[in-house]
Computed example of a mutant assay.
Amino acid sequence: MQLEHATEADFPAIINLVNAAYRGKGAVESWNIESGIIEGTRLTDSLLREDLAGKPHAHFLITRDPNSGAVIGTVWLEPVDDQAWYLGLFTVDPAIQNQQLGRTLLTAAEEFAKARGARSIRMGVLSVRDTLIAWYERRGYSRTGGTEPFPYDDDRFGKPLRENLVFAILEKHL
């Protein structure tokens, strides 16, 4: 799978893809949307630009459909320290899920980070998303026992519909 850095020209497609995959705002609903957990927009143009500007060492990568050139997957990779990288905004086009594209994209992201010195990948997944956590566990990720609070005071990521949201920290040694 070919990964490339996202460009400004890709932003509209990326934003539509992320919102469809996380919040079900698209023609086809993803198997892992945050329905009943968080509502509203997951990503906007201004939030994407802010994140990219604020984290210049991060890599926001995309993969494209080899025939149409459309953006069909995204992944954010960011060095946390000398050996650990953070993975976020992992997205696959809901219209083509269940074709093992997510597995392939995750492997490509891990290889990208490993080639740049990563010895482990960490991520935060909402602890109530048991099905998604199980998917990552089948790919070698484990719960670290750590959590991070959900940013209830920051409405840029949508409106939480529950009071008990925390991110479970998962990690995989590469």
Rank of each mutant, 00 (worst) to 15 (best):
E163S: 15
D93C: 12
W135D: 02
L17S: 03
Q100I: 14
L126Y: 07
S35N: 10
M123E: 01
L132C: 02
A58Y: 14
A9Y: 15
G73M: 03
D154R: 07
G124Y: 03
E29R: 11
R23S: 08
A6E: 07
G145S: 01
E163I: 10
I62Q: 05
I133H: 07
V166R: 02
P160T: 00
I33G: 08
T144G: 00
K55R: 14
T147N: 02
V71C: 10
M123H: 08
R122G: 01
R119P: 00
G102M: 05
Y141D: 00
A115D: 06
E110R: 06
W85M: 11
N19E: 01
L170H: 04
L165E: 01
I169C: 04
Y22C: 05
W76Y: 06
P94S: 05
V80L: 15
I38S: 01
F157L: 10
Y152S: 00
R138N: 03
Q100A: 14
G88P: 13
A21M: 05
G102P: 07
G88V: 06
T131W: 09
A108C: 02
P79F: 15
A20D: 04
A20I: 00
H59N: 13
I62M: 09
E111I: 11
N16V: 13
D93V: 05
Q2D: 10
D51G: 13
L132P: 02
T74S: 11
R143F: 02
T144M: 00
P66W: 15
A27T: 06
G54K: 13
P79R: 14
L89M: 15
D45E: 14
A134E: 08
N98Q: 14
K25Y: 14
N16L: 09
Y141C: 03
T107C: 03
A95V: 03
A9N: 11
D155T: 14
L47F: 14
K25W: 12
W76A: 07
A84L: 12
W135I: 00
I37L: 12
A95K: 15
L170G: 06
H59E: 10
D82M: 13
L3K: 10
R49V: 08
T74G: 08
E111H: 09
G24Y: 09
